[in-house]
Simulated scan of single mutants.
Amino acid sequence: MPHITYYFSVLSPYAYLAGARLEDIAARHGAGITYKPFDLMTGFARTGGTKPADRHPSRMEYRAQELPRQAKKAGIPFNLRPAYWPVNAAPASYAIIAAQNAGGGDVGALTQNLLRATWAEEKDISDDAVIRDALQSAGFDAGLADSGLLTGAETYARNLEDAVGDGVFGSPFYIVDTGQKFWGQDRLDDLDLHLAGEL
């Protein structure tokens, strides 16, 4: 059975734009997914990237055109300048890690709930109530927002080290157990073709 390691940041608009396509592709090919939220802003500094706030204006102008276009293509609502961004990504990331460890719910749905909260619903994903609601909506115990803090913090730090070690430099980033890497939501079709043995 193939396996996909999914590195992402809950702050990433491109991870939001991916929607449920990763989960659909994995289901179609019988692939497992390990969700690995990581500190993307620190990751940029360690892999030659630049935080959005420090990018050249021409890059930010292009981003301002490209993100709404991609959202329109995906048929999903999108706010280019959400009220709560950037925020502390750690609490929401800890919740995803705790939920994956606990099982019993839908980690993909939880991840999408949190991304949608930022990029479409004007919610603060560092807020405990927002995290609890996202957990419950995905079939998890809201108490994981509290009980998973210690393990979540340790794993979140380790995920960054794993990401750098695995050659990850952006979000979303997908690595198949064949060693093939796919960066960006616009490479999901390629991931699909690879799992089908066509690429």
Rank of each mutant, 00 (worst) to 15 (best):
G48R: 01
P91Y: 01
G148P: 11
G197P: 10
Y174F: 15
P68A: 08
G19F: 02
R132C: 01
A89R: 00
V10P: 03
G104N: 01
L195I: 04
D54W: 06
I96A: 03
G75F: 12
D190W: 14
H3F: 09
F78C: 11
A89V: 10
A109T: 11
G32N: 08
L135V: 05
L144M: 10
A18N: 05
H194F: 12
Q112I: 12
D166M: 13
R55D: 03
A142N: 08
G32M: 04
I97G: 00
E121S: 14
T5V: 14
P82H: 07
G104P: 04
I25F: 06
P172H: 04
D162N: 09
L17R: 10
D54K: 09
W119K: 05
T47S: 12
D124M: 03
L80D: 06
P57W: 07
L150Q: 14
L135I: 05
A99D: 03
A83R: 15
D162Q: 07
I131G: 02
P77S: 06
A157D: 15
A138R: 09
L149I: 13
R158K: 14
G179W: 06
H29A: 01
A145W: 01
Y84F: 15
L195C: 10
G105Q: 12
A153H: 13
A31E: 07
H3R: 12
Y6C: 10
G43Y: 05
S147H: 11
A31Y: 03
A138G: 08
D166N: 15
K123Q: 15
A53I: 14
L199Q: 01
I96R: 03
P57T: 04
E23D: 12
P91K: 02
Q112K: 13
A134R: 07
A20F: 08
Y35C: 07
L195S: 11
L160W: 07
P13E: 04
R69C: 05
M41A: 06
E61T: 08
M41C: 01
A142H: 06
R59C: 00
W183V: 04
L193P: 00
Q100C: 01
Y14M: 12
A102N: 05
Q112V: 13
R158Y: 01
S147M: 03
H56K: 07
S9E: 05
G105Y: 09
D124A: 05
V107R: 00
I76W: 00
P91D: 00
E61M: 13
P57Q: 01
A163M: 11
A109S: 04
G43M: 02
G170C: 07
